[in-house]
Amino acid sequence: MNAPPLSNSLREYARGIAGGLMFSLPLLYTMEVWWTGFVAEPLRLLLYMAAVFVLLLGYNHYVGLHRDASWSEVVIDSVEEMGLGLLVAAGMLFLLGQIELDHLAFEIVGKVTIEAMTVAIGISIGTSQLGGSAEKSKGGAEASAKTEVTFEGQLAIASCGAVLFAANVAPTEEILLIATESHLLKLVGIALLSLALTALILYYIEFTGSRRLVRAGSVVVVIVGTAISYAIALTVSAGILWFFGRFDVALLTCVSQTVVLGLAATLGASAGRLLLQ
């Protein structure tokens, strides 16, 4: 295969940027996220970048546009997505009046970095999922129908979906509010609802792709699959909450917040995962 024509790559980038904006706009428009940009320690931002890069590698490897890609291509794609994410986030924040040239370098870099990470995940998904029919033969829906995605692949994609869904609500004050004000039994209710939704989406309501990606064999399969999905969701929501500095409180509040956010995360880990590949 020769190098692709220029117009193709241009279109691919534009598609990615459209996807990036689509998935990250709620975060770009949220005050709490801007604030976290300069409240968070630099080390925390570095860890966040590393975590997102691993997610991008996973997503690009298992679902990405170039499915037969070697690892070097996957790395290159991920670097490009993260770079474009930084660029798009900076441009958007500037237009939204959230970064001014007279701001401190740290404030600018912090805000841009934190926003860029979701933009990058959006770009990755946009590039591979919003493609037209011409691209299908290269790796769109048809190609993924042919190849089975492995268990590790499912884990990676579920994590991506969970991050994408949970990140939109995680930074808001409402999560803490709900977590502290709800009766404990209601929190148990939220957890049960999360589990029920996960099981239904994955095994019952025949969501797009569910036939192909999950097999409802026995009850055991359903229980194990649901448990794994919800476990991913809880892990991701705990990670995001920690990142947004929401874990400097009592253990019970931490757990409650994780459960409250877990509902969004588990929708991402189940429905998101089916839609993203």
Binding site: M1, N2, A3, P4, P5, L6, S9, L10, Y13, E41, P42, L43, L45, L46, M49, A69, S70, S72, E73, I76, V79, E80, E81, M82, G83, L84, L86, L87, A105, F106, V109, V112, T113
Partner: peptide, 29 residues
Amino acid sequence: PKKNWLEWMVFGFSSLLIVSVIGFLVYES
């Protein structure tokens, strides 16, 4: 990997951007 000049340019620019952000954050911390 087969890439055209635009893709290499985007890759080069992205790498530069990421390295400088990481460098800056490491310096800050």
